[in-house]
Amino acid sequence: MVRILTAAVLTLVVCLPMQAQADEVLEAIEQAVTLYKQGDYTGAAGNLDYASQLVRQQKGGQLESFLPEALSGWTAADTQSSSMGAMFMGGVSAERSYRKDDGDGRVKVAIFTDSPMLQPMMMMFSNPMIVASSGAKLETHAGQRAIVDYVPGENRGEIRVVVDNSILVTVEGQHVEKVDLVAYLEAIDFQAFSNLQ
């Protein structure tokens, strides 16, 4: 049992970015090992849960770096990230909102990973009939297959992209043209996602 716990701890440590070494994540893991050896399984599990949450928060910070800057004529809000544990079905996300300087236009770009929303999205991409029945369309933008759901008469819509079957990107907006949504999608460096750990 100790070997299993040690292997899990080592796996978690190896997956951490280098700058995360020797920080409170490792302290929580080391405390978990100590408590486990003392027979305090509840305390050990609690510390491992805490370490996992800290790692998810770090990953959320990584996702924030992929959010685009405001395009010309727009103003960007601060980036935000969140992480939910297994108790809440998991998932790490980051988002940023943008406002058009000369009108009511609003756009929000969000990036999700380790999310339960990925599975139904992947099903939609693999079955165009599901997409068509929802009123959306399959298109290609920024070199990515995208589900585009835009309502011209209401000037609102959403574009969804799944990257490497593990990352969901959404661009949604109100009081905007479709070209605005596409422009924000194309401002994302999708190749950089390969560096995400």
Rank of each mutant, 00 (worst) to 15 (best):
3 R>I: 13
7 A>M: 13
7 A>I: 09
8 A>K: 09
9 V>H: 06
10 L>R: 13
10 L>Q: 13
13 V>W: 05
15 C>L: 14
19 Q>C: 09
21 Q>I: 10
25 V>W: 00
27 E>A: 13
31 Q>F: 05
34 T>D: 12
34 T>I: 15
37 K>C: 12
37 K>P: 03
37 K>S: 13
39 G>N: 08
40 D>L: 11
40 D>Y: 07
43 G>L: 09
43 G>I: 09
46 G>I: 07
46 G>R: 11
47 N>C: 15
48 L>K: 02
50 Y>K: 11
52 S>N: 10
52 S>C: 10
56 R>C: 03
57 Q>D: 15
61 G>R: 08
63 L>V: 01
68 P>L: 07
68 P>H: 08
69 E>C: 10
71 L>W: 07
73 G>E: 11
80 Q>E: 13
84 M>D: 11
84 M>Y: 12
84 M>P: 02
90 G>R: 04
92 V>T: 13
95 E>C: 07
105 G>P: 03
107 V>Q: 04
109 V>G: 02
110 A>K: 04
111 I>Q: 05
111 I>H: 06
112 F>V: 01
112 F>W: 11
113 T>E: 00
114 D>E: 15
115 S>Q: 04
115 S>R: 00
127 N>C: 10
128 P>Q: 09
133 S>L: 08
134 S>M: 14
134 S>D: 06
134 S>C: 04
137 K>Q: 13
140 T>N: 12
140 T>L: 04
142 A>G: 10
143 G>F: 08
143 G>L: 10
145 R>I: 12
150 Y>I: 05
154 E>G: 05
158 E>Y: 01
161 V>T: 07
161 V>L: 01
163 V>A: 03
164 D>I: 02
169 V>Q: 02
172 E>D: 14
173 G>I: 02
174 Q>T: 11
180 D>H: 08
183 A>H: 02
183 A>S: 13
183 A>Q: 03
184 Y>N: 00
186 E>W: 05
190 F>T: 01
191 Q>Y: 03
193 F>R: 01
194 S>K: 12
197 Q>N: 12
197 Q>V: 09
